[in-house]
Amino acid sequence: MSNQKAISGAKRPRARKRRFYQIGPDFSGGRPGFWVEDESILPPYRVDRLPASTPHVPYVFDKKVGSLPRDLEVCYHWWLISDRTKAVFERLDPEAFVFVPCDVRMPHGIYDGPKYWLCDVVRVLDALDESQSRLRIGIRNDVRYIDHGRKYYELSLGDKLVFREAAIGNAHIFRMAYHDAGIICDQEFKDACKSAGLKRIWYIDVLKL
């Protein structure tokens, strides 16, 4: 009898909370040897998200100028990603992204490397638990900003972000509402990228910015 009471009174282990990371390109590696050949192809600066209807983006790769792109690089406020990166992203969370193919050429010879894509994280979630987080929250009063008159988040070293998992649901990657540059992924997304051997990507634990 006493054993039954002990078993029934035992506490159940708490479900582990998902871990989240800020994700982005690793800027180490020296001077880049790649650039957009015709910038007029790209959407105007004030277009927040990359339209799927964007024409093929012409890129020049020249290793004499600098290092060639790896799996994830910055392209203005989007990403330039390799074909294998696209495969991982699409497998994990296809609805989170827009991909636009790049036409790559080299100044000398013919490019025969992997395909590259312009990529944008188009899912935006208002999922931050502001009461549990540590960051600056304000109203943008500078007319030079697109979000003039609206709430914004400003992140600094030492800040902490706590997210409401119910607002994230099954999503593995998203942009933060009120902080467009903040792209967040979960542990599963990070692990999949690591397992695939994707290079040139950094992750920062959002609890220890």
Rank of each mutant, 00 (worst) to 15 (best):
D147R: 03
W35K: 04
I146D: 10
F20I: 04
K199G: 10
E37F: 07
I204G: 02
K199S: 15
W117N: 01
I23A: 02
F61T: 01
R91H: 14
D186S: 11
P13C: 05
Y152D: 09
F163G: 00
P51R: 06
L125H: 05
I137N: 15
L155M: 07
D103N: 10
E37D: 12
R164C: 10
I7P: 03
F97S: 01
G169W: 03
R84G: 04
A127M: 04
C185A: 14
F20E: 00
D180I: 08
R12C: 12
F61C: 03
I81T: 03
P32W: 03
K160I: 06
I183A: 11
C102W: 02
P107Q: 06
V122N: 02
V206Y: 00
A196L: 09
K63T: 11
A171L: 07
G113V: 13
G158N: 01
V122I: 08
D48H: 12
V47C: 15
V100F: 01
R150W: 09
H77P: 07
S67F: 09
W202C: 11
E73F: 04
I139G: 07
V57R: 00
W35T: 04
P55L: 07
D48N: 13
V60T: 05
L50Y: 01
W117T: 01
R31K: 13
Y21C: 01
I204Q: 04
C193D: 02
I23M: 06
L42K: 04
I137G: 15
Y45A: 15
E95R: 15
K190P: 05
F20Q: 01
A166P: 03
I146R: 11
P44M: 13
P43N: 11
L157H: 08
R175F: 04
L135H: 04
D159H: 02
R105W: 09
D159S: 03
V206E: 00
A87R: 10
F189K: 01
P101E: 06
P32D: 05
Q4I: 12
S82N: 04
A166Q: 08
V60C: 06
D142Q: 06
Y152C: 09
K5R: 14
